[in-house]
Design a protein around this nucleic acid. Sequence first.
DNA 1: GAGCACTGC
Length: 754
Amino acid sequence: MGVDNPYTNAPPIGANPLHGFLPRKVTAEQVIRAMESDVNPFNKQPHKPQYKKILEGRKKLPVFGQMAEFLKIFTENQIIVMVGETGSGKTTQIPQFVCYSDLPHTKGQMVACTQPRRVAAMSVAKRVADEMDVSLGKEVGYSIRFEDMTEPGTTFLKYMTDGMLLREAMNDPDLKRYSTIILDEAHERTLATDILMGLLKDLARRRSDLKLVVMSATLDAQKFQKYFSIAGPSKPAPLFKVPGRTHPVEVFYTQEPEPDYVEAAIRTVLMIHRAEEPGDILLFLTGEEEIEDACRKIKLEADDLVNQDPESVGPLVCVPLYSSLPPQQQQRIFDPAPPSRVSNGPPGRKVVVSTNIAETSLTIDGIVYVVDPGFSKQKVYNPRIRVESLLVSPISKASAQQRAGRAGRTRPGKCFRLYTEKDFMTELEEQTHPEILRSNLANAVLELAKLGVKDLVHFDYVDAPAPETLMRALELLNYLAALDDEGNLTPLGAIMADFPLDPQMAKMLIVSPEFNCSNEILTIVAMLSVPNVWLRPPNQRKEADAAKALLTIPDGDHLTLMNVYNSYMNNKHDRNWCWNNYLSGRALQQAENVRSQLQRTMERYEVELVTTQDERKLWQSIRKALVCGFFMQVAHKEGEKGGYLTVKDNQIVSLHPSCGLDSSPEWVIFNEFVLTTKPYIRTVTEVRPEWLLEYAPNYFDLSTFPEGETKRALQRVLKKRSLKAVDGNGTGSPSNRSNSPASSEPAKKKSKKQ
DNA sequence: GAGCACTGC
């Protein structure tokens, strides 16, 4: 009392607006009184002047009017399912309500709110810090890969990516630091969210003090309610529902199915431009090439229209949008529509032609018309041949609804669906298949094993993956010696799981010190973890290919990737180096980040960073280390026409045109199998068959091989080897290695730099 | 002789 205070009406310092609050028994009246207090209940500072203004805005959100209802359900239940449509304010408000009731700061705990995307975690945390009148990174923070904006002991509300919470669970399976966990955007069903749902359901049984809120946008809530009925099968988790705040969108269908959806889409855009009121258009297409092509055609035709009839048709700009577009060009979607060309003439219009990125990740204000051909590229996984590929497929009803909603963000809008109403009703699936049903699960299975899940097959999934997909993952992890024959996590597997990498890459990185090239393998693994670094602008293909040739190492694409990274590091003083060499500076910067993060994990497990000075020897060692991770991705040349057959799976594949090998070697390992116009293997390096037999004897046990040329070729190698009696290539072959690298433990021994 | 739907650690 009596302390000078710059704010009039300020209560005495030390007054506690949370006085009398009983954790998890707090009422809406109490919360609102505390919110309206002049002193911040969480840091005891007087509120900044804009706090009240922001609070008035919050009070207008639909979810705010239902605070009492929410707090009651929160008090009475351990798990809540919440449905809030776009604009309800759930992502910003619910975590705050939870904090006022749960009072995590009084028990040294936190409330976590997960997001599928990093940008969302960051921007929502910033917004909520402002609303709560605290500094970002103090009471309210966020945690994403490469960036932890929290302060231990101070932060009590943490927004984070779902993947980040999963990582934390691997080292603290009880997640004891959290009093309440909120899973936001659960309807998106990312792989991480799905695994978290299984874990948290189980954890809620073990930790009766843990509360869960599962938030979702669409009406698949019933499924979640049923899944989270831990009080008994007849007691579904309670539902808390909040209406959205968007404008109505009128939906139109075509009378007949459209045979060519791109052509129909272009026609519809131009029809809107000629005939509809002002307002911007959003057109959904499936990929970069399709989008660039459509933009060109729309522009040509629109220019024609304007030239023919400048009195009644306004100018039109067409803006492409997809994720590999440089950020600067992505920003163009926020430019205003062009002005009319003549005074009092028709106003201009903006058309954004986008992939699915505009369905969830990016919102564009001012969109009034949506054109939805009903397709998107979706990942599919074929466990039989172990291939993930992208396929243009029909979208789901939920997705179509989400797209339509994009037209109603600022005012009433219209959505033109380029399919019939009957097809919408009968042909489209209700929901997009969750990612867990469409992915290679090697990574996820290793994570689950590390999380202590004993029985992967009978784990309580929201949607159980195909048994064959699980078998494929278990098989791979067993060959990599991450799981033993009983499916238990090995000590090696436990270390592998801590690397944010595919298991093949984690394995090869961990064994690489034995080949005296961990420094190089670290670089290669980082480069394989980021998007394609090569740029190839349509009008400068020749120049780009020439630049690439200068950096290419013909012994293998993996070595080329290493060379690119090293050249990039050696030329950091030159700001134009990336651009001059047709390389993506963004991707290379990302590789640098990934590399240093992985290096820290290596240090934690004492995986040494070593290198070999002799370059030829070094390259060979790298190729051997690659075999230790990727021995299941080997192809053998068949015939003279450059065709390859994958080992064991017997898929006919070709070297991808981007491959930099100067010949077609008999044996290669590949990083990726891509199925586009035909099956390709991409990022390819030559290997020797002796290495396959030596470093992966379990997998290359010829008695398990299908008959064929590959088997015969390997048999010839074996025969030659037994005649010569072993290991003809001398150096670089560590003596203390057990016969099977599939059982090798991480190298902790001291290996000298050569 | 072609690509990268979108995320995440």
